Computed example of a mutant assay.
Amino acid sequence: MVDHVLAVAATWTAWDGKPAHVDDRMYTPHKAIRRVADHLVDHLAELEARLVGEEPQPDHWHASASTTEADCAPFTQEDLDEARSRLTRLARIWANRLGQLTEAQLDRSPGDGWSFRQLACHLTESTYYADAVGDLS
């Protein structure tokens, strides 16, 4: 998923500043990167809480329903470099964490919600945000 998002993001330095409207939402390059990173962090926090027997903390923000002023800024080469670094590290954290779980933990995860395997598969759908902006080459 991260490889796909970064491949599409590599075209976003050509963004003309016009948000993409998909369904009832608006997407920009910065918002797409933010949403992918937030999705990875949110579900990682859920996984870690459930592993230690805690209730996951709910988020109290508006996710993709909210578009900030910062989301509308030009997407520069420096932004792409930062996105590559951030998303690659988050993907590595996920791979490391999942690699330490047994098959039983992946499929019969503690607490309410999807199994950790289902959660990991769900994250592969985070390409939606990048695909909403699209390939701008």
Rank of each mutant, 00 (worst) to 15 (best):
A32F: 02
E46R: 04
D59K: 10
A63I: 00
H60D: 07
W61F: 09
D59C: 04
L44R: 14
K31T: 03
W61Y: 11
L44H: 13
D42T: 07
T28Y: 04
Q57M: 09
L51N: 05
E54G: 07
A37C: 08
A37V: 02
H60V: 03
P56C: 05
L40G: 04
V41T: 15
K31C: 03
P29S: 10
D38Y: 01
I33L: 10
D38K: 01
L44G: 11
M26Q: 14
A63D: 08
E54S: 12
A63M: 09
H60R: 12
A45N: 14
A37P: 13
V36S: 08
A37L: 09
P58F: 06
H30E: 07
E54P: 03
H39S: 15
W61D: 15
R50C: 05
R35D: 13
H39M: 15
P56I: 00
E55K: 14
R34D: 06
A49V: 04
T28M: 06
K31R: 15
T28V: 07
R50L: 03
R34K: 09
E54A: 10
V41E: 13
H39F: 05
E54M: 08
R35H: 14
L47R: 10
E55S: 13
G53Y: 02
L51Y: 09
W61N: 12
H43A: 07
D59V: 12
H39V: 10
L47C: 07
P56F: 00
P58R: 12
M26V: 09
P58M: 12
A49R: 07
V41M: 10
V41L: 14
T28L: 06
G53Q: 04
H39A: 15
L51Q: 10
I33W: 11
Q57E: 12
E48W: 02
E46I: 01
A45V: 00
D24Q: 15
R35L: 15
D38L: 00
R35M: 15
D42P: 00
T28H: 09
P56Y: 04
P29G: 07
H43P: 01
P58I: 01
M26L: 11
H43I: 00
H60S: 11
P56H: 02
A45P: 05
P29D: 11
L44D: 11
V36E: 07
P58E: 14
H60Y: 08
A63H: 11
E55N: 12
A63T: 03
